[in-house]
Amino acid sequence: MNIQFKKGVLEICVLSVLAHKDCYGYELVAEISKRIDISEGTIYPLLRRLKDEGYVTTYLQESAEGPPRKYYRLTDTGRNVEHEQREEWMRFVASVNALLEGTNDAAD
């Protein structure tokens, strides 16, 4: 798929992973790149912007091995935004699918 388009949907992907559970950076990147092929490095600037916007906060947590890790948590605002964007995305995908199926029938 066009990568130009992928970057735009990265935000909703990050928000929705964080809606499930708090993550540290590497975990979040791994979770997303498992399904979407992107330059993983761009997730960190995105996380900073989400933090600037007040959608996420960060906290440090000790880990069994090595130094503490930086965790990202959704704020209440972030949770609302996640919800809105999720609905918007679902509606959009449903419309596109309906359109594609419609043209598919016509082609038969």
């Binding site: 990568i3 130009q4 735009g8 330059s39 761009t42």
Partner: peptide, 11 residues
């Protein structure tokens, strides 16, 4: 900034 990508990623 959130939408425009840099150079092509090596995918």
């Amino acid at each position: 900034i959130g939408v425009i990508k840099g150079t092509e990623c090596v995918a």
